[in-house]
């Protein structure tokens, strides 16, 4: 994701502001990192350039049912 998109991104739960932490960048795009909502004390991962802004309960449910929530950590192919 491009950091300049941050200005309109919001927490899916409280719609509050998110704080970006960059772990890896490439050509001005955030490849790995996270978005933190202080109001919810919730961290949303950025994996392979795509922020995962699923509501946390749904994200955990999807992880539990085996959907690859973080493809970077292991390929299923």
């Amino acid at each position: 994701m491009r950091p300049d998109l941050m200005e309109i991104l919001a927490c899916p739960v409280c719609k509050g502001e998110l704080t970006l932490t960059v772990a890896r960048e490439d050509a001005g795009e955030v490849i790995e990192g996270s978005l933190y909502c202080a109001a919810c004390d919730e961290t949303y991962p950025i994996t392979e350039g795509i922020p995962n802004l699923l509501p946390p309960d749904l994200r955990r449910a999807m992880e539990a049912e085996g959907a690859p929530a973080a493809p970077a950590h292991g390929s299923h192919e």
Binding site: M1, R2, L5, E7, I8, L9, A10, C11, P12, V13, K15, I50, P51, N52, L53, L54, P55, L58
Partner: peptide, 14 residues
Amino acid sequence: EFRKGVIEQIPLDD
């Protein structure tokens, strides 16, 4: 830009 999320809880500002 692509975002992972659900359309019932859109992760964008008002």
